[in-house]
Deep mutational scan, measured.
Amino acid sequence: MIVFVRFNSSHGFPVEVDSDTSIFQLKEVVAKRQGVPADQLRVIFAGKELRNDWTVQNCDLDQQSIVHIVQRPWRKGQEMNATGGDDPRNAAGGCEREPQSLTRVDLSSSVLPGDSVGLAVILHTDSRKDSPPAGSPAGRSIYNSFYVYCKGPCQRVQPGKLRVQCSTCRQATLTLTQGPSCWDDVLIPNRMSGECQSPHCPGTSAEFFFKCGAHPTSDKETSVALHLIATNSRNITCITCTDVRSPVLVFQCNSRHVICLDCFHLYCVTRLNDRQFVHDPQLGYSLPCVAGCPNSLIKELHHFRILGEEQYNRYQQYGAEECVLQMGGVLCPRPGCGAGLLPEPDQRKVTCEGGNGLGCGFAFCRECKEAYHEGECSAVFEASGTTTQAYRVDERAAEQARWEAASKETIKKTTKPCPRCHVPVEKNGGCMHMKCPQPQCRLEWCWNCGCEWNRVCMGDHWFDV
Rank of each mutant, 00 (worst) to 15 (best):
R256I: 00
V17T: 03
K27C: 04
K211I: 13
C337T: 03
F362N: 06
R6G: 03
Q326C: 05
C418E: 01
I2K: 14
G85W: 10
V17K: 00
I44K: 01
P202F: 08
V5K: 02
D86A: 11
L187V: 07
C268H: 01
S286H: 01
I2S: 13
P216L: 08
D274H: 04
V393Y: 04
C449W: 01
I2M: 12
K299V: 05
V3D: 03
M432A: 05
P113R: 09
C377N: 02
S407H: 12
G292Y: 04
K220I: 09
E16V: 06
G93A: 14
L325V: 07
E300G: 09
Y267T: 03
D18V: 05
Y143W: 08
R334I: 12
N356G: 08
C449G: 00
E409C: 09
P73Y: 07
A371M: 13
C263E: 01
F4R: 15
Q165P: 01
K408N: 12
Q440Y: 15
G450H: 07
T217Y: 09
R156S: 15
E96N: 09
T387L: 12
R89F: 13
K211S: 14
G194E: 02
C293I: 02
G459T: 15
M434N: 04
S255R: 08
L297A: 05
R75H: 12
S10T: 08
D18N: 12
H422K: 06
D185G: 00
L342S: 07
Q316A: 10
S136T: 12
G12P: 08
V105F: 11
V244C: 04
S65R: 05
C289S: 02
R455I: 15
E376Y: 07
K27Q: 00
D394I: 05
A363H: 13
D346P: 07
H422T: 13
W403L: 06
Q311H: 05
Y315G: 00
Q326D: 10
S378T: 11
P437Y: 09
E367W: 06
R42Q: 09
P189M: 05
C196D: 00
L112W: 09
C241W: 00
Q316R: 11
R128C: 09
S181C: 07
T351L: 08
R334D: 04
P288Q: 07
D243Q: 15
H373E: 02
D346H: 09
F7G: 03
N235Q: 10
F146M: 06
L297T: 08
